[in-house]
Design a protein around this nucleic acid. Sequence first.
DNA 1: TACAATTTTAATCATTTGATTAAATCTTTT
DNA 2: AAAAGATTTAATCAAATGATTAAAATTGTA
Lengths: 215, 215
Amino acid sequence: MKGTKQIKPGKAKPENDTSTETKIKNAARVVFHKKGFAATRTRDIAEEAGINLALLNYYFRSKQKLFDLIMLESLQGFAKSLLDIFNNDKTSLEIKIETFAEKHIELLIQNPDIPLFILSELRENPDLLVSKMGVEMILKSHFIQQFRQGIKEGKITPIHPLHLIMNMLSMTAFPFIAGPMLKSIGGLSDKDFNVLMVERKKLIPRWIKAVLKAK
Amino acid sequence: MKGTKQIKPGKAKPENDTSTETKIKNAARVVFHKKGFAATRTRDIAEEAGINLALLNYYFRSKQKLFDLIMLESLQGFAKSLLDIFNNDKTSLEIKIETFAEKHIELLIQNPDIPLFILSELRENPDLLVSKMGVEMILKSHFIQQFRQGIKEGKITPIHPLHLIMNMLSMTAFPFIAGPMLKSIGGLSDKDFNVLMVERKKLIPRWIKAVLKAK
DNA sequence: TACAATTTTAATCATTTGATTAAATCTTTT
DNA sequence: AAAAGATTTAATCAAATGATTAAAATTGTA
């Protein structure tokens, strides 16, 4: 009794460009990142994409499916950029810290809404989502091994490795999460704010190293 | 044409206790803090409070009004605890840093959902809400004056005061915002996590002081 | 107790919103 | 060009949800 039903849209376009499917996905990324799942209406996405509402369901079946796609992509993008640096066994601890600050802040300047998006949505699905990225590998990464070795050799003041991870993620990501508030506190324009963030690329490694030696 | 309309509920109870009004407000705080405005249904609040849905509108007129109340209270609680410490002109810079870490983390252990709640909702209303708390006073606080003086005297490495504020808020608040993710990374129970947070009360002041001297 | 005011309930309304459908348009293939 | 298939549109549906209403229950008061 369901009339004619398209099971799966054709895959005419081979890769990139502005196919309808891509337009919808890009719009969904923008809106979901900015407003989160609950506050986003499928009509917002349709409008942002400049398409008819029904097309969203035609291409992606449901709001939830589309959201899962964006979330997975966001999580993996974050996890990959992190683990690529942490697992590089050719670089020193110091270089890893510098590379992390540089690359992570650059990513955040380009996508300032990602941290709040991920962490907000993670609050409701703590388990499922975390299991999708290899985030539990972080504590076994080459970086953390180097950190433990540094402690063993007396070069680093002993603390739980998670404190280090927290501090690095905190100092890079938090300013973006609290962006609006910080701009108010400091009376900063978006441009002023970004200048400070670029400064932090160099400052944070310096600070982290100081923290590692702090008694 | 609007039938009989209750303008304002009576104010029988003089202060505290478990009046219906209070039960609703407490329930609203819990649910809003945990799920945010958009994901919260008035029925969730009614259920959490153990009351009939209509009572919510009877006492608070609308979901939005109730939310504004909770938000204002949360913002002011945060701003007050911060400014009380920062504006105390009897204490040294070091003591302020120690007191801040101690008091702020204690507040967050008791109310771990507040930072994500405030910062999520602030994303949509950047202006209005910030104007409700005297947060723009922070850069003029006694604390920041002491900080500038320290730089002038060559005791502190010169950086923009906002970097200091960001670092202090980052290191204390971010772990709570990223709580679920961090527990996954570290394989921690809620109790384990809180142990780390208590450790940070002492560690963060040490780290901040090291950062202030880092070249 | 009786009366009035307040508080609470059950039922219902109106809007919003995710999703579907059937028809129209466009594209590709023969 | 004709047929077949893919894409897009306008209209509509059904469920969720914020809010209201009228009546019932409770409390306070003379």
